[in-house]
Design a protein around this nucleic acid. Structure first.
Lengths: 238, 238
DNA sequence: CATCGGCCTTGAGTCAGATCAAGCCCCTCG
DNA sequence: CGAGGGGCTTGATCTGACTCAAGGCCGATG
């Protein structure tokens, strides 16, 4: 459970080194009884033995093309999944907040990398254990399909956002989603403007300007850069 | 199996009427022996009893929010999946060509609509039959996960395209994908410029201009609007 | 407490792609 | 064969978001 030093790099610095530290985890995971394994609840009524692990900011949980041996659940902090173009352009597919499951792959390898946004605790479960459980119990299989279902629905929504919405609609949709998710009009943003931009298909300057504009028009409050109070975003989005 | 008249509408005309014709299908499907049911191969070694159906251009296979009772496979023609914004902006999530399976949902309802691009034959299988088969046989369940896997991988790629690529990269990626898919440098485009634009997050004019430009620089040939011969797209995309 | 380094904001200028507007091509149908 | 219409192309213009650049804020650090 040791935290490895996060790799500091500017916003658009390209190829990141793989954070190490998995060998130890994999070893301990193979002997759960001796090393403090615990039950991880991947879904309602879907608990499997696994382990916890702390990631430093920007540390990778897994990299693109890496073997998908584990399924992850965020306990605290935040995780982003990213794909890179060879020249360093980056697309953040999704952010995962406490309670979210990520890294649930269908194929043998991950098709994107996952990195901690801030210091983050994750629980991990061996994929083989998940698969065995699903084959034993159709209800568990259905649970997994439900997880994947929400994932896919979010991706579809996000494609519409990336393909057809303008800057203020994108930012508004994002903030509304976070607000709904937090059940609160007050949002703590764990991610930088650059992360938001790479998620929304904008530049960080445009994100910043758009949020300033929203604050000026009293659709939101910005007590500081990482805190947003939503007032009248519905009106603004429309 | 009767073809219902396609609804003719301009490119960006918004809310489409639901094409009817399912009641008949559902009835026949319930009595397969008597009405010509056949085995539909959803994946390698995954054949289930189902039916065929012909869709006219622009006819819906299913609509957004409709119950996901069937899984579909394209036999001939082409299908697009679309999501709409209230003001008519449209995002085409994917095109499905002969051999492709679509409409495989995790949740109870479809999260997008599916329409025929051209006249299209599809095979349909009851979803309940698919689920029952998956619960009986883990190998079938794995087949379904593989299908979903490719779907998800494509969505991820497409998000990167929508979020971070410029117009010529988008068109180039699209044409390359079709070319790879067809195992041929000659592509027949079943879809209009408008459909391409709504898939790539561009306007139809930009798609047209970009392709003309590619033809002028001899990266492609355009014998006519719906046929493309790929020459040197790799170079152009880079 | 001063300095440093990330982030964030803001401004000015530019440009890729959207918008608006003809006109063309080609297929269908009378 | 001529008219009509849908889809495609092309041109002119506009504009929203990007780029480049400067400076401010703030937390970490010595």
């Amino acid at each position: 459970m040791s935290a490895h030093p996060g790799l500091a790099y500017p916003c658009l610095d390209t190829p990141r080194e793989r954070a190490v530290g998995y060998d130890a985890v994999m070893e301990t995971e193979l002997a759960p009884a001796r090393t403090g394994g615990r039950l991880v609840e991947l879904g309602p009524g879907l608990a499997l033995p696994g382990f916890t692990l702390t990631l430093s900011p920007n540390e990778e949980a897994f990299g693109e093309e890496e073997e998908a041996d584990f399924v992850y659940k965020v306990l605290s902090g935040a995780v982003r999944t990213t794909r890179l173009l060879s020249d360093g352009r980056r697309q953040i597919g999704a952010f995962y907040l406490p309670g979210d499951v990520f890294g649930l792959e269908f194929g043998p390898v991950h098709r994107f990398s996952a990195e901690a946004v801030t210091q983050t605790d994750v629980a991990i479960v061996r994929r083989s254990a998940v698969e065995r459980a699903a084959e034993r119990d159709p209800a568990i299989a259905r649970q997994l399909w439900t997880l994947a279902s929400h994932e896919l629905a979010d991706l579809q929504d996000h494609m519409l956002l990336l393909g057809r919405k303008n800057a203020s609609e994108r930012v508004a949709s994002f903030l509304l989603k976070l607000s709904r998710r937090a059940h609160s009009r007050v949002i703590e943003l764990p991610m930088s403007r650059c992360d938001m931009a790479d998620h929304l298909g904008l530049t960080l300057e445009t994100v910043s300007r758009t949020m300033s504009q929203m604050a000026r028009s009293h659709a939101i409050d910005l007590p500081n850069a990482r805190r947003v109070v939503v007032h009248d975003l519905e009106a603004l989005a429309a």
